[in-house]
Amino acid sequence: MNGLIYAFLAIGAAFNALGAVALIRFPDVYTRIHGATKCTTFGSLFSILAVAVYGIVQGGGAGGTMAVRAFLALVFLLLTNPTGSHALARAAHRSGIKPFRAVVDRLEEAGHGPRATDHGPRETR
């Protein structure tokens, strides 16, 4: 069981590192959301699974509580993370940020693009 825990911890750390690097290296907001959301969700999933396995191995009241709470944290992350990133992507598009070197932008064509009277916060690039 210890081998399993070490493997989960290593996978989790590796993919979280990849998420942080993707956040630095990608060229615009949307690609950054891609990298950061996918990689940190996957990495955190394995980190938290390692803790859940550790709790089950320990057993008893304390270990069981740890496993159950870790599992609940996992479920919440898996449900809330993609929804939050979806909201951020839509907000970025509506606040007027163009996708970097996009070959096609159907969302702007459909009239859901930035509004004419925009009161949102703007920073010039």
Binding site: I33, R122, R125
Partner: peptide, 8 residues
């Protein structure tokens, strides 16, 4: 560079 980047 933009506020959305910081939010992400």
């Amino acid at each position: 560079p933009t506020a959305a980047d910081r939010a992400v």
